[in-house]
């Protein structure tokens, strides 16, 4: 690079750097800072804006907790209603049979086959005193 080119490069760099005396903005730092902070807020509270996702998440969690027990209660009520309707549809004989089964002293879990109604009749006959 000869002297001429060097001089041109220097001149270009000096020009681009714009460091001459008039290259200073007229505004004052403090005045601009004050103006920006006072007049250029978006209108929405800034810290609140930053916290918004967390607040939303928290609210969603609260709502979920508030509604979950209701869902549970609803299920239980339906189950009771269904049980009542089944009980009503049973014949009296079936109800008696069930009551007898519940009253049996034998552990049901150990029995291989449950006794049918004729076996129960026979058992009842054996229990009754001979005439």
């Amino acid at each position: 690079m000869n002297k001429n080119t060097e001089e041109i490069e220097e001149r270009i760099d000096r020009f681009l750097q714009a460091e001459e005396n008039e290259s200073f903005p007229a505004f004052q730092d403090a005045a601009l800072a004050k103006d920006i902070i006072r007049n250029h807020q978006d209108g929405f509270p800034r810290v609140a804006g930053k916290m918004l996702p967390y607040v939303t998440l928290g609210l969603a969690a609260c709502l979920a907790f508030a509604f979950l027990p209701d869902f549970g209660a609803g299920d239980a009520a339906e189950e009771f209603q269904m049980q009542d309707s089944i009980a009503e549809s049973l014949l009296d004989s079936d109800k008696e049979l069930l009551e007898d089964l519940m009253a049996l002293p034998v552990d049901v879990g150990t029995m291989e086959v449950l006794p049918d109604s004729s076996t129960l009749d026979l058992l009842a006959l054996l229990d009754s005193p001979l005439e």
């Binding site: 290259s23 403090a30 601009l32 902070i37």
Partner: peptide
């Protein structure tokens, strides 16, 4: 919303941006 910090940042960067 710290005004002093805003002023300091402006002081640091206004010249490079302006030029």
């Amino acid at each position: 919303d710290d005004q002093d910090a805003m002023e300091e940042l402006i002081g640091l960067w206004k010249l490079p941006i302006f030029r």
